[in-house]
Design a protein around this nucleic acid. Structure first.
Lengths: 221, 221
DNA sequence: TATATTTTGTACCAACTCGCATAATAAACA
DNA sequence: TGTTTATTATGCGAGTTGGTACAAAATATA
């Protein structure tokens, strides 16, 4: 049927013993992630998931376990991809402000990838809902948010060492504030705020976090 | 409160014609709101809802319509209560910084009311998930977030007029940044971050938004 | 009393949910 | 060729879902 075309022959690896898989795990996972991303965990049925993954339901179970395991796997993959993108954006060759701007810009691009139905962040937009009643999801969410904090903190710590930051600045708190703006962008994107508004908000946030005092609320004398 | 007309008749006005209701609409709605708050819209079954409301399912339907109508009603009530609390916290007798601190403190108190299972914000924690596929929920969410922005903006605008703010400051952008921190606090609370951490983050945010430049990342020379 | 009106409780429905048992299929291996 | 092994497809079953029909119950009114 759907495997008549190709048997998912991956590279030069010798085929395993049994019948070859009719799907590529990575793309199947990406499809599942997209379903969860749009509908959330609770509203994603296995029918819709297996259809999007182009797999029969027993195959989904055999390959990835039950619905929760599949969801946790999607969350973990998303977390890793996001962390990698953040580290890439925070190129130490750029100033902390430019790096932060790049992080926000990349995040907004992901959040608003589909202009017809912006999805925001998979973790904040869907895992947060499950977090109250599902401790495993809560832990995955908490760990992911902490990781994003830590990546930003590392950059701010480096900047302070390099003299790009006031020595009195607290890198950990700065990172939490910077991450908070990213989380808020995710919420606003999912609520439908348009991309231009998100980007100007992000720019104002960078100015406030890293400089350009003219635009803050501070009274200057 | 919001509909004095209908509420007044339950007091001591003549009883309506038929069999009297066995529930108080306000408390029943609050119970429904709590179920949605913990489980989200999709994972809240009518069985659980009607049990929490201490009403039979047909009674729920007769009084509030279907599950979505009940949810939208809970969202609207929550939005109104939140807006009232924000306006109360932003007492013009206080400085903008103190008012903002009060807003965050009140928000965190709501988000972390149950220390065993902090729920964050009903809108951000549950409506965001439904927003992608349910345009009515998305609109309710977007309008609520915009209302929170507007309430903060009004206070900043007043502060600028009163000379408490740099004339170059942009009240609209400041309000969006301030609201963004509130949204992030909601996300972090639902992810399980402890109350003390949220409060110190909120304080650092107020300092950054309204003054105390020593703690920002700005390099001062 | 009898009637009108509204709410309540029981019981039900069709559709959908997740997960699995079973068996056919497709490959490597002997 | 047959055997082994892994994946596929079919189909089912127990439970849950949102929503409703119906009649009993409780009140006001005539």
């Amino acid at each position: 049927m759907r495997n008549g075309k190709k048997m998912a022959e991956t590279k030069d690896k010798a085929r395993p013993r049994g019948r070859p898989r009719g799907f590529e795990p990575e793309t199947a996972l990406a499809r599942a992630r997209d379903v969860f991303w749009a509908a959330g965990f609770a509203a994603s049925s296995l029918d819709e998931l297996s259809a999007a993954m182009e797999m029969s339901r027993p195959s989904v179970y055999a390959a990835f376990g039950d619905k929760e395991a599949l969801y946790l796997r999607a969350l973990a993959d998303y977390r890793d991809a996001s962390a990698a993108a953040m580290r890439a954006a925070l190129d130490p060759g750029l100033s902390p402000a430019d790096g932060l701007r790049a992080v926000y810009r990349a995040a907004i691009a992901v959040y608003c990838a589909d202009p017809a139905a912006p999805r925001g962040c998979l973790l904040i937009g869907t895992a947060a809902t499950e977090s109250v009643r599902n401790p495993r999801v809560r832990q995955a969410l908490a760990e992911s948010l902490a990781l994003f904090n830590a990546i930003l903190e590392e950059r701010f710590r480096l900047a302070r060492k390099a003299g790009e930051l006031d020595t009195k600045a607290d890198p950990a708190m700065l990172a939490k504030l910077a991450a908070s703006l990213m989380f808020a962008l995710a919420v606003r994107a999912r609520a439908g705020e348009d991309r231009a508004a998100l980007e100007s908000l992000a720019d104002a946030g960078v100015d406030m976090l890293c400089g350009a005092p003219a635009k803050t609320g501070r009274k200057r004398s």
